[in-house]
Design a protein around this nucleic acid. Structure first.
Lengths: 176, 176
DNA sequence: CAAATGATAGACAGGATGGTCTACTTCTGT
DNA sequence: ACAGAAGTAGACCATCCTGTCTATCATTTG
């Protein structure tokens, strides 16, 4: 992959995630990255194609980060602990690769696009299913309902952390 | 409140919720409502003011719907049941006053606006806190952790129902 | 009746947007 | 060294955006 193309994706990722996709114009990405407009349109046929590339990259980034966080858990309880600890770190900006926390990029992006069948929304859906599949695989022997519940809980945590500007959700959720 | 003003709020609410705020221009609202531009700017000083009015209205609508759903629960288990049943009906478009399900208007809106301290985001936050307060009040004697967990679970359900186009979340979440 | 109020239609301004295109420069592989 | 590829700068286009303003019409109220 061309370095310019990668720079564009990285820069767009940051701006889109931080401010939302409709709020960021092509020109802002160009100015911020210092790359020429022609170069962008050499690599991407449209803004949407660039958006899809950022989603794709974030998807791999996130899944690989999360699966690393869940490694080596001995019991299901331990795995849940590791999951919540990972979320807590993310929410409190202690995970460099994920950037400054602003909720889930996929939830946020899906929220911006009404058309359910658009490629963008489909990617967001695929990402969430992949996260759920990762949990299922990590949770040995657990029934589907337990997986489901853990997944829903973490979705709630991520969403609430952002919408309520609540950096302590995880701690409170864990108190019994 | 002037009838024209109310019509504008209703119409804008529908379009914003269905397609997202940045995706809907003032002119679209005017065309769809058949109201003149001057009239809109007589009642609202800007698009943002109109957005805030729709959030305010949706907030009251939603809270009053939800509190009606939670009425008359005898036990905390029953209350949780009623909550999940309500979510299920909403997600499956059986609640007329809430319109065709497209996730949580407040989560979606917050996702579109990067500035955390903007009036729009503050309203979204206030709404979520009000929902949590409603749950806390409805759940007699329950500890804060139980309230928190129920709240996070429903946030996860709403978010997942939309992002994953998953109309069966509630059913699956309830299976033990 | 007359005055005030509220609504309408739509032109208009000023700026931003996504995207195309040209002319020029720099890098790279053989 | 030289050809072709890749990048740059930015003018330009058509369209859309929010918001203002004028001129006209309808309704109500004193």
């Amino acid at each position: 992959m061309s370095t310019k193309k990668q720079q564009l994706i990285d820069c767009a990722m940051g701006l889109f995630y931080q401010h939302g996709i409709h709020a960021i114009g092509i020109n802002e990405i160009l100015k911020s990255s210092g790359i020429a407009k022609k170069t962008l349109y050499n690599h991407f046929e449209s803004k949407e194609a660039l958006v899809l590339a950022t989603l794709e990259q974030r998807h791999h980034l996130f899944i690989s980060w999360l699966s690393r966080c869940l490694e080596n858990a001995q019991t299901n309880e331990q795995l849940a602990e590791q999951l919540f600890s990972a979320l807590d770190q993310w929410i409190n900006n202690k995970v460099e690769v994920l950037g400054e926390f602003r909720g889930c990029y996929f939830i946020n992006t899906a929220a911006e696009f009404g058309e359910l069948s658009s490629p963008i929304n489909q990617l967001c859906q695929r990402h969430k299913l992949a996260v759920k599949a990762l949990l299922k695989q990590a949770l040995n022997d657990a029934d589907d309902a337990a997986v489901e519940r853990l997944f829903l809980l973490s979705e709630g945590i991520i969403s609430t952390a952002y919408t309520c500007h609540d950096t302590d959700v995880v701690k409170r959720a864990l108190k019994n």
